[in-house]
Nucleic acid binder design. Structure first.
Length: 111
RNA sequence: ACAGGCAGUCGAGGCAAUCGCGGUUGAUUCGUCAGUCGAGGAAAGUCCGGACUCCACAGAGCGGCGUGCCGGUUAAUUGCCGGUGAGAGUAAUCUUGAAGACAGUGUCAUAGAAACGGAAACCGCUUUUUCAGUGACAAGUGGAUAGGGAAAAGGGAAUAGUGAUUAAAAACUAGCUCCUGCCCCCUUGCCACUGACCACUAAAAAAGCAAGGGUGGAAAGGCGCGGUAAGAGCGCACCAGCUGGUUGGUAACAGCCAGGCUUGACAAACCUCACGCGGAGCAAGCUCAGAUAGGAAAGGGUUGAUGUUGCUCGCGGACCUUUCGGGUAGAGCGCUAGAUUUGGACGGUAACGUUCAAGCCAGAUAAAUGAUUGCCACAUACAGAAUCCGGCUUACCGACCGCCUGUCAAC
């Protein structure tokens, strides 16, 4: 029930990024697009500003974990992109989860 | 013990539980379940070299690029190993971009007289000439003085004669002697003036010098003795360099002998010489599927489109460019069993090679290693595979092991 399989991974980043609504706080940015075509898909990103490949990998894994543990609290009719920010580099999973849920509440996609 | 040098090893700290990810194997009631493997020494920078793929068969010349002591090693290299020269260090050891500067062209700022022409004279050293000064001195001229010689002249005494006769005297004459002594001559010292030559000093001119000073990164082999007017490889000894011979070494080179005496640096300036290099790169490239779909229009094309390297040749030989309107951007192969990993034996100083045994050790494609909790020694740097290997370079917390050198102490 907490799995994250291959076909849940988003491929069409450009469409979601361009057409989706964005929500942000101190720790992350979330793009949300309600579309049946991409329903239930998710993508994770970390820009080059965050640092080298190791730190970017770490941020992506944090986002992945935050989504994985909470995906059943979210409506599955939309595509989501999570983008990490600098404050997440040294953060623990708790802060990422808090930030993610806070944004979901604002976007009204919580079940 | 301290100081130093060389070479190497480890490194998401480990364990447990729960949730989760990629590959793969097996089972399956096709929902899943179980097993197993899963980032690095640099995965990095992309600086070299290859493998592999496509481009005639990978070709020729010019150009271009690279390399540059010698030998070896390798698939190959700007790598590595061994050696030589030079430099640094007491030493172990380290550094080295190390062909050619009498084939040519060029550069050497500032300073300095002069920066490669066998050049250049600023101070300086030396010779000659001219002029001036100083000193010393031969000599000359003049002056005063002293001594000597000679001696005009004067004077005195005595003598002789005349007088000169009886006897005498005055007077006269004579020479000798004595005294004074002009002019003249000689000598010594003194004073004044002149002063050849010599020495020194100053100036000017002409010539010689490359020793010394000074400038500079560098001043035309170094240093000493001789030599010289002063100097100079001008001569000699030693050292450095060059050329030739010879011995050793595969060679770089080293040793010895002889020679004439000597050639600045820069080639990471152009250049010369030798050797090497075809180009593009896994988004290479191949296959399948799919789309009204092997579209349409214009232009150029076998008198050569286009490709092959920048140019020329040679080779191949039918498409190419632009615009319009669309479509696909999915899957598989390439892709990980290899110049492979570990261990041993043998050969080699070594790099490395040969061989035997055992093993399989990431293969993703929005891209897999994470999260939480607890315990332990409590502390983690640089950092994340994308076709693969061999090197180089750079980054780095902390630790460990071995060998070697020097100093001190003890024996």
């Amino acid at each position: 029930m907490f799995e994250l399989s291959r076909n849940e991974i988003l491929r069409d980043f450009k469409i979601v990024h361009a057409q989706g609504k964005s929500f942000a706080n101190r720790d992350l940015v979330v793009y949300i697009l309600r579309d049946e075509k991409f329903a239930g898909k998710v993508g994770f990103a970390a820009g080059k500003k965050l640092g080298n490949a190791v730190t970017r990998n770490r941020v992506r894994r944090l986002l992945r974990e935050a989504y994985r543990l909470n995906k059943n609290k979210i409506s599955s009719d939309c595509a989501i992109i999570l983008v990490g920010r600098k404050s997440l580099i040294d953060a623990k999973v708790d802060t990422a989860i808090k930030a993610f849920l806070e944004i979901c509440r604002r976007a009204k996609i919580l079940l």
